[in-house]
Amino acid sequence: MTGDPSMADGIYTPTGRRIWRRRSRPETLRRFGLWLIGVMIVVWAITGLNVHWPFVLDAPQQVADLAGRMMPPAWSFTGEIVAPMIETINIATLGTILACVLSIPVALLAAQNTTLNRTTLWIARVIVVTSRSINELVWAIIFAAIFGPGPLAGVIAIGIRSIGFTAKLIAEGIEEIDRGQVEAIAATGASRAKVIAYGILPQIMPTIVGVVTFRWDINIRQSSVIGLVGAGGIGITLNSAMNLFNWPQVTIILIAIFIVVMASEWVSNLLRKQFT
């Protein structure tokens, strides 16, 4: 309601029937103003893109041209991408295992009900945020610089990148556990570590399995691109094929990645159904 006293009694038509409006006039104006600001931001952002319009209009021809060069796929190249593809899957799997091992203690510290004190809660949250806010390609560049290019850098990049995701979701699972079961184990005189092993771990096992297999599936996708910056796997093969403009090879690599990603999604769904 506004301060306008005439509003208190409502507004009437000349025939004396009461008018109903969803919003008062000042409200309508304010909403219009907000819309206007929103539209201006979008227009400003598009001009900021510096779009070269002839290239955009040209795009359909370019797509046709590229597609023509990519076809037919270099089927003969299939044999040579098997090894890097397996390496990609291995990087994803080892990275996920690394993340799983590291994220359980982080999750215990990041959950309100199991953390030791304010400081440990804060540290765990910083780890979670850091891991999540830095892209896997950036992590891959960092670890390729530290350990040298190759699959090891990839495994560590994938692992570190995944901790935030897995630890956060596992911590949320820990915060939802049944306190009664924990209380009962504590009442037997068990130490803190045993309370975790018996009272907490069995309760969060379905969460851990679900989150970790889901993350593995994501990591298969990520590990196929980190090769672009030299961290091992199919990405390296993809990168060199693109640098050589060998488009038929690029096609076969993309097909291979597509198949493996589909398969991993199927496997992770199967695993999650199995364990919950």
């Binding site: 049944d178 009962a184 037997t188």
Partner: peptide
């Protein structure tokens, strides 16, 4: 606590 056995309303078994 090892010398005190406790039984609970909601059983509190590890399910």
């Amino acid at each position: 606590r090892r010398h005190m056995g406790m039984i609970f309303q909601e059983y509190n078994l590890v399910e």
